[in-house]
Write a protein that binds this DNA or RNA. Structure first.
Lengths: 201, 201
DNA sequence: GTCTATAGTCGGATAGAC
DNA sequence: GTCTATCCGACTATAGAC
């Protein structure tokens, strides 16, 4: 693949990230993506055969980054710190990459006209692997017991809601309010209290 | 308004709920909505002047139901029980009305081509009102201190993720897994541990 | 009030010259 | 590899008969 090809593919994926994250799969148009990438529409379709293929390629290129926070939980670390790190990494990802976050959120909410068996398989594998780690920590009394899969998704979704500066927060607290700082404090409180060993009452 | 008019408007909104929740605003078409409602497309546009107006009317008709769980928090009740009731009502709403949940989630994620100032204003008013109630309970030491607005949204989003049987849960745990039962147990654990007065460590 | 028919627009995708 | 030109289908919305 030539240098110019690489550059154009990159420009297309970057433009697609913009459009798909703002308007969803249906709402984004090839016209917009081509314009944003500085290419004509036929030229766009020279690089990718269809809209679906652009979307698929985009998801594949983002998947590793997206799964990194959960993936970096280590069975060998101190349990609470590992879980807090997962939360902080995810929150940071959402802060610096809101568009990527919205792509995946939209995928979960509305699905896509094409399936992603490889993507689903990788998510399943990773979540189940980390759930085993969490359950082991609970068995050894290092953190309080709860359903590990629900815990993983709870942190996933709680951090997710702060993407794109958290629309609900902006609606309630003003257009220019940035909830990220408070978010970390709040989520650390939740997790510390939630996971403290031998819960009472 | 005649009886037949009322019946048709109702059929249209019901069909619109189906289509908008499955495909989003852009993805839904008037053809599908008209067919589902048993009307011709021009007849559909006799009742509502445009696609946007259908969407707007639908949101308005669902708003009260959607805000009811939060609205029913009473300053006079026992704090933890009131908050658990909010969580349970929201979870029940998500269980029996997944389509409605997806409509609002999609609105938050992608917005809509038309604004909803009245809707936003009502959400803002309600959240701020209940945040004051929560803060008062914290000041009186009845529940542990945390940011009340973040708490309200945390419960909102944690229950939300179980809508439509919770796609991520189904991907990881199998197509026919239903997380609702476990969800209530899990969320009650989270909230009890989170809100227990005078937290230690 | 409800229909058939269709106008006008825009979407994704292709053909073929250069 | 990139372009102009264009096809075709699907979409929202309107006109006008009944």
């Amino acid at each position: 693949m030539s240098r110019i090809q690489r550059k154009n593919r990159e420009a297309i994926l970057s433009a697609a990230l913009d459009m798909f994250s703002q308007h969803g799969f249906k709402g984004a148009t090839l016209d917009q993506i081509a314009a944003q990438a500085g290419l004509s529409k036929p030229n766009l379709l020279y690089y990718f055969p269809s809209k679906e293929e652009i979307h698929r390629a985009l998801l594949n290129s983002l998947l590793d980054q997206w799964l990194l926070p959960l993936n970096s939980i280590s069975a060998k670390g101190e349990p609470l710190q590992e879980i807090l790190s997962y939360m902080r990494r995810k929150l940071e990802l959402v802060r610096i990459a809101p568009r990527e976050s919205r792509i995946f959120a939209s995928l979960i909410l509305l699905g896509a006209p094409h399936s992603h068996p490889a993507l689903e398989e990788e998510v399943r594998r990773l979540v189940l692997e980390k759930a085993i780690v969490l359950r082991d920590w609970m068995d050894r009394g290092l953190i309080a017991r709860c359903d590990p899969v629900h815990l993983i998704f709870a942190i996933w979704t709680l951090t997710q809601q702060y993407a794109e500066c958290g629309l609900p927060f902006r609606v309630v607290l003003g257009e220019h309010y940035d909830p990220h700082q408070e978010a970390e404090v709040f989520l650390e409180q939740v997790l510390r209290r939630m996971l403290r060993p031998r819960p009472q009452w």
